[in-house]
Design a protein around this nucleic acid. Structure first.
Lengths: 212, 212
DNA sequence: GAATTGATGTGAAACAAATCACAAAACACA
DNA sequence: TGTGTTTTGTGATTTGTTTCACATCAATTC
């Protein structure tokens, strides 16, 4: 039933996001067409890989003509549901939560943090442009804004408890910043972001590279 | 020479970090021995995988006796250089940089942000317990504290420029929070953390799961 | 102290991901 | 219209990762 589901995000999906960012840049520069090797050069992969990745997501270009950037971006917006707004809740207004609540890139990509939550009543007024509610109002807000995805930035100790509550109220995906492995039903997507591990990984590879 | 090097952190390394976190928890609970399936259950993988991962990093246990937790943690500390202190610099004291500078888990793991930097002179006093310097003092600090790893939390537009400067002063590893692909020499480790992509990935998988 | 049990460690097998190689399509131009 | 060129899209191959299967060892029991 409840289990540790490490829904590892596929590398091909991450690469697709890179391609898109690159296409957006090219478009801003007035470019209209891109080839697989254009994207490959810009993102540090091979052109084969670009095409294979597109193939995986059924994205098609024009033989010889490459890819029409506008067309491609539109297809991607559909595939990644970017044409709709996505309402997000953020739980935990500590340092990290506060920073995330102010992170403007989310809004630029149609992902709106509609409300934040914290158990500390002091933080409930003070900290942000986005309303900060007590946990008691979680269900009400999730229902009102049809929220399906949450950002979890609470301390490790309460992460599981809060995740359970979120899932009980209908949340189906969580980006988890707490260094805890959440036990969740198999139909809930978890994406763990562990900042210590990210930093420590770099330290490890730096040492390794310096030794050789 | 300079190129986009996406040093993707290996999944096996990430799992090793999970095992270690799990071992630390077990130790705190007074447990002294662990088996491959203990770690497997706690981290949501198979016991085969635990053993294979250990094998990759030449970590050995005792046949039949499983793993002595103290012994195992000590071995890991050596492998991951946790017995030493690691001095880190953080560039960019915006929302995210500020939050990272206050993130106490880094210190708990012997990773010390010795100084932070920002171009904005206003931020140079105000924001943190850790000193905030102007970019001009970067080289001095890097040299004084033998810093090899940096956290980059500057806006996308200046990410490449700052990265170049860091590398010029001897930085060998960067955790990059800017949504930009950095072009660096092949002996520099880059770990990109893209918060938008992390969130968007979850949205994608949630939609996919709800459709099926 | 031999037999049994329970765990590790690692080659072999199965699976997944990336690269290669080339047929098919579209355009250019004679 | 036909020939040459360029680029896509995708089977085939290679490479990498995970799972399987079992030999090996250490502890326990008879």
């Amino acid at each position: 039933m409840k289990q540790i589901t490490k829904h590892i995000i596929k590398n091909s999906l991450k690469r697709i996001f890179l391609y898109r960012a690159c296409l957006v840049r090219l478009k801003m520069m007035g470019v209209e067409k891109a080839f697989s090797y254009t994207l490959a050069n810009e993102t540090g992969v091979t052109s084969d890989q670009v095409r294979k990745d597109f193939s995986e997501f059924s994205i098609k270009g024009n033989k010889r003509g490459g890819y029409d950037i506008n067309d491609l971006l539109e297809k991607m917006e559909n595939i990644f549901h970017r044409n709709k707004y996505h309402n997000i809740v953020l739980i935990g207004m500590g340092n990290m939560g506060l920073a995330l609540s102010k992170y403007s890139k989310f809004v630029q990509r149609n992902m709106n943090i509609v409300a934040t939550f914290d158990i500390d009543p002091f933080k409930q007024k003070l900290r942000s442009d986005i309303p900060v509610y007590s946990m008691g109002r979680l269900k009400e807000i999730i229902d009102r804004f049809s929220v399906k995805v949450a950002i979890l930035a609470v301390p490790e100790i309460s992460a599981q408890e809060v995740a359970d509550e979120l899932i009980r109220h209908g949340i189906k995906g969580i980006v988890n910043f707490a260094p805890a492995l959440l036990k969740v039903p198999p139909d809930v997507i978890i994406n763990n972001v562990n900042l210590c591990d990210e930093l420590e990984s770099v330290i490890y590879y730096v040492h390794k590279l310096m030794k050789v």
